[in-house]
Amino acid sequence: MDTPSATPASRTFNVPATATSAEGAQTLIEIDNFDFYYGAKQALFDINIRIADKRVTAFIGPSGCGKSTLLRCLNRMNDLIDGTSVKRGSVKIRSIDINGRDVDSIELRKRVGMVFQKSNPFPKSIYENIIYGLRIQGVKSKSRLDEVVEKSLRGAALWDEVKDRLHESGLGLSGGQQQRLCIARTIAVEPEVILMDEPCSALDPIATAKVEELIHELKKQYTIIIVTHSMQQAARCSDQTAFFYMGKLIEFGETRDIFMNPKNPQTEAYVSGRFG
């Protein structure tokens, strides 16, 4: 992996050759004709997208384009905000409409985990942070918890760094470690999908590289959707990319195609750094 280039002038993208092709992958999430509102203000317009299983999908676009909103719709975190509503369309995961009446948002969130822009470890020990999700599900067995902690921390490539201080506060870790702790916490409950909302925006380049490496590892087991501001990041770690603008999905396709030969002029303008 090359070190990310920071200068916008030299926007050349290293699309990994290892990227698995979309063909053959199963569709996991189907979003059809989806409209979403904050109060009276429409935030998303007629979104249609098919997200593949066990792949990394990146949502890119300028600020306020609706990419984070769509991400938060996928595990219904928007329920927590006053006045939000789905007016039309559906989001289906494994053919189940997650906005359906019989769907429990709590159960949904156990299956669709989320990592936030600002790392938010709880002010508890690293160990307690990891097992939080299991604790609330009622898991009590000490051996099982220990096992999960090690597995999750290894999965998040954090085990070697923290194994000696599992019972120290999670707030004592560095920014990058905190974010990986949050990822470890998320995979501890074994979700199918991990949503990442600009997970690296507050991290330095080295910590970012580590998280990106981790994403590569994780996609073997999990479906990952990542919202990012950095196009390099999208190019480096995603298999598919969706470009949003003003609440509309402009273009969606293989990352290679989006960055190398975008079909839509707006996409081209954005990825070549002419706006946004």
Binding site: N75, M77, L80, I106, E107, R109, K110, R111, G113, M114, F116, K118, N120, P121, F122, P123, Y132, G133, R135, I136, Q137, C182, R185, T186, V189
Partner: peptide, 23 residues
């Protein structure tokens, strides 16, 4: 109490009450 504590907990599948009482 920061909003992140609540969101983080909810994103892990905790119910609202679990979030409030433990986080």
């Amino acid at each position: 109490v920061p909003k992140g504590f609540r969101e983080g907990s909810l994103a892990l599948g905790a119910t609202k009450w679990q979030t409030i009482q433990s986080n």
